[in-house]
Design a protein around this nucleic acid. Structure first.
Lengths: 193, 193
DNA sequence: CCCTGTTCTTACCATAGGTTAATGCATTTT
DNA sequence: AAAATGCATTAACCTATGGTAAGAACAGGG
């Protein structure tokens, strides 16, 4: 089965039955994506939330000055979406791009709303997923406000060494909230220690 | 009834029945707090998530240098907690303080876990609550990384004029990720326009 | 109503990170 | 293989914000 990762996640979080899992799985639409292909374009309504079976993606916004800001970096077994657009079903501000050859499994808004009603386990799983996502987001925000870019970079390569290696530095810099030039300076400094 | 605000919130998000609501309500423990009183101290396990009936609170962390960082500012009809500590039931890093005479209604971890099992509406409500909280957190993070402190301040007083008036500037500055001195400078600059 | 502590402001200098521009690889395209 | 593109680095200069210190304004408790 291609989605063992997801199955294990859900089993760990809820007491979903075999049959319920198969029901849920039947709603997931497999979508392969070539490197650099956008799965979502800024301004479109995001109708799905996607689970990454294989590969790597980023979501990002573009500010008034045309500068990109990486909101999320996601690899295997992560969910990705423009949740604001998804939750409100209105046009969003994020684009989502495959950074490698990627296989995404999409769960569409109306299907998920149906599933919530049919299977309490699904709602419970997403309740826990959003709760964790919120906590992580708060911690990242807190780190951004309280520690230096250098320390944030160090924590990133410690905590997510795989992401740090797969993703171009330019996107890492953006994720950290600095320019590639600054990241380069920081890396140089760290090496000389 | 003291908790009409919460009742309306939940009714808007789910199809909870009158009886179910009364059941949920019976688990909420009313806790009045004097101004400057901490409802939670850093290092303790946060055993509750609290709904503010009246008043105003902040959650904050203290970094290695002893500097406070305001994580959340909450007024009437907001929930507040150290969600990381709450979700894991391990010691947390946040303190939660009443900024005014406040009436808080606490929902305890074990009770909420029980309620999730008894009432799907409750899990659905919190799923939606966390989803929204995550979106807001992402937007705040994005703003922090992409726009200037001046613009963030302007957006805060536009979007939350009531909070901006009730809360000392020193906490607003911390929430925005700058020092009170910088906020003062920004305010002076904005006036002279 | 005064007194003490908190909050806010001002002014000074210091610094992390932004901006711009140039260079060198590496990888893809033709 | 040549050309074009994208990515990483370096350097010189610039700016927003931080750090520190001090005083002014205000608020709450006795």
């Amino acid at each position: 089965m291609a989605l063992t990762g997801l199955y294990h996640n859900i089993r760990a979080a809820t007491d979903i039955s075999e049959n319920e899992w198969l029901h849920l799985e039947s709603f997931l639409k497999r979508r392969p994506l070539k490197k650099k292909k956008n799965a979502l374009d800024q301004g479109d309504v995001c109708r799905w939330i996607g689970f990454i079976e294989k590969g790597c993606m980023r979501s990002y916004s573009i500010d008034d000055k045309g500068v990109e800001h990486v909101v999320q970096l996601a690899v295997e077994n992560y969910w990705i979406s423009d949740l604001y657009s998804f939750a409100t079903q209105t046009p969003g501000t994020l684009s989502i791009e495959a950074l490698e050859e990627t296989i995404l499994h999409q769960l569409f808004y109306t299907d998920l709303e149906t599933l919530y009603k049919q299977l309490p386990s699904v709602e419970s799983y997403f309740r826990q997923l959003y709760q964790r996502a919120y906590i992580v987001s708060q911690q990242r925000l807190n780190a951004t406000l309280s520690i230096s870019a250098e320390q944030r970079y160090r924590e990133l390569i410690e905590g997510n060494p795989s992401i740090a290696q797969r993703v171009p530095l330019l996107h890492i810099a953006s994720y950290l909230g600095i320019t590639p030039e600054s990241l380069s300076r920081i890396r140089k400094m760290l090496l000389s220690k």
